Amino acid sequence: MDKVLSHVRQLKRYLLKKTDNTSQRTPENNNHIVTSGSYSEMRIKLLVDSLFVQISFGLVGIANWCHVIGFFSQFWHFGPLVTSEISGFVIRGYSGLWKGCEETGTLCFRPDGGSWLKATQAFETLGFIAAVAALILIVLYVFVPATSGKRIVFILSMVACFIAAGCILLGIIIYGTKMDYNLSWSFALCCIAGIIFAVAGLLLAIDFCKR
């Protein structure tokens, strides 16, 4: 009987020791979980500044793709074209800002539109530079810790969006007034890009006014 009681006492001691060890480790594990959670929250706050900024970032990315494709492609207009290589030689085909091709694609040329085409090229080039600058600045503002939340970076990205929108749409207006028929999809893409940049700039301006 005494042996049985001694075994029971030893078992109780063992169970008490095990319970004490478990209770001592639990706060450490909880602290670890809290620390991990707070680190995740810190990262989210670093990457996500505001809803308007995040929407603007997505819009600027989409607008850049639209403008790059429209800017460099040769499908702004389809119809009778005048080449600069052969004076007075008119052919039918597709034409862009920098290059045109006869509709079968066998003959390509540099389009000749005079001063209005050069003005369109100039404004679209300025819009392209401002668009790239806007994308770089908004990426710096949202994702780079050293520049995230900087007021000057935010203002510059907003201004770059408005400059890109203004230059792109001015080029569109000049081209559209001279070639007001048979406009093609490259022209439409640049038009969409200009509108999207304007919307992104407005969203950034609204976010700026709310602060």
Rank of each mutant, 00 (worst) to 15 (best):
S38Y: 14
L189G: 02
T83R: 07
A131W: 01
A122S: 05
L204H: 02
F123Y: 15
V132F: 01
D112R: 14
L126K: 06
A133L: 14
L47N: 13
A63Q: 04
L170M: 09
A134F: 00
V153G: 01
T177Q: 11
M1I: 11
C167A: 15
E85S: 10
F143P: 08
I129H: 07
T104N: 13
G79I: 00
L16E: 11
S40T: 05
S148F: 10
G100L: 06
D207W: 01
R92M: 07
G171N: 08
K18Q: 15
R43G: 08
R9L: 15
F109Y: 13
S87V: 09
C161P: 00
Y94H: 06
I69Q: 02
M158H: 08
F187G: 00
V60R: 01
I206M: 09
K150C: 09
R211P: 04
G93I: 02
A165Q: 03
C161F: 03
S6C: 10
T147F: 03
G61P: 02
G166N: 06
R151P: 08
M158A: 06
G58W: 12
A119R: 15
F71N: 03
K178P: 12
C161M: 05
I86T: 14
S84N: 08
F208Q: 07
L59V: 01
F52Q: 12
F89D: 11
H32F: 10
L204R: 01
F52I: 04
T22D: 14
H67D: 02
L204G: 00
K150L: 12
W65R: 09
R211A: 05
G166H: 05
N182V: 10
A164T: 00
I168W: 00
W76C: 03
T177I: 11
P145F: 06
S36C: 14
L51N: 09
L117C: 10
F57C: 12
G113R: 02
N182I: 09
Y181N: 12
R13K: 07
T147E: 07
L81Y: 03
L189D: 03
I174W: 01
D49F: 12
T35A: 11
W76I: 02
Y141W: 06
L170A: 14
Y14G: 15
A63C: 07
A133C: 13
G171F: 01
L169Y: 01
H32Q: 14
G93H: 00
V53F: 00
H77A: 07
Y175L: 14
F162C: 10
G176H: 05
V159I: 12
G105R: 01
I44S: 08
V82N: 11
L107G: 13
C167F: 10
R92D: 13
L169W: 05
F89T: 08
I86R: 15
I33H: 04
Y175E: 03
A131K: 01
L189Q: 03
N30R: 04
T106V: 11
C190I: 02
L81P: 00
K150Y: 10
C209R: 14
I33M: 02
T104K: 04
S38D: 14
